[in-house]
Design a protein around this nucleic acid. Sequence first.
DNA 1: TAGTAAATCAGAATAAATCCGATTTAAAGG
DNA 2: CCTTTAAATCGGATTTATTCTGATTTACTA
Lengths: 143, 143
Amino acid sequence: MKVEEALQILKEKGYKYTGKREKLIRICAAERRYLSAKDIMERIKDDYPNLSFDTVYRNISTFVDLGILEETELDGEGKYRLACSADGHHHHHVICTECGKTSSLPGCPMNIMSAIPDDFQVTGHKFEVYGTCSDCASAPSHS
Amino acid sequence: MKVEEALQILKEKGYKYTGKREKLIRICAAERRYLSAKDIMERIKDDYPNLSFDTVYRNISTFVDLGILEETELDGEGKYRLACSADGHHHHHVICTECGKTSSLPGCPMNIMSAIPDDFQVTGHKFEVYGTCSDCASAPSHS
DNA sequence: TAGTAAATCAGAATAAATCCGATTTAAAGG
DNA sequence: CCTTTAAATCGGATTTATTCTGATTTACTA
């Protein structure tokens, strides 16, 4: 997804345009990486030094609902990245547990579906591979 | 895994036996369901009315390290169940997001491994299917 | 049975996330 | 362009899960 698409979705759904919202989206668009609310907050503060974290959390939550951001949970913390599943085929990620960097995996393991009990209503699933990316393996400190 | 195996592991590794530890393990052994720390705490209180939550959290953490409990994260909360992967073949779960009940899926989607970058060190992965079990579908309140 | 390290307790501290009442602002209409 | 108004934001308090800390108790060993 691109920044313009995300802003378009907001407009279509009747949400107001604010510089903070655009900035938040641009921050997420800038890297192939899951970011925590705190990460995002720090970066927004470059442009908006005294925004409240309520604003960040509320907007993140809105964007997740609208499918603009994808969410995962790592180390007991919500992490977010610009949605890419909307772009084309449904897929999953390899995630570096050090820096959050992602790369895509082709396909989806949900073809094991046939083994799921008939009376179980599937609402979602998660397939994620965790590990250390080459950057973090050579430079152990967080990037 | 059975309660006796779990206690055996504790003994082998030089951990002390306490009634609270056995009770905690028995609670987890009693159901095919992920339980939160709070769930576990409530149930232990039947036998030990004034145990501290530090004890529960510390023991859970120990048991996860020892492979006695399996951990997942749902709704920003740690959830635990007696390890079953140790029993036989490696597998994954279908989890009811209402009550935490689980059933097993055969196999593992990690055969998509070949698509993972060569320089990425895999340390773990997660494949979970979420939804509503038949019990919860017919009786919407938590069980 | 005494000594010791481990386990537990009780409550304070931390950290992520949410809530709340007051204030500001984007955008629609006159 | 100005007014209006609901949405967005602010700032700080609150909630909730989890961890820490220092004192006390207890399971095991010799």
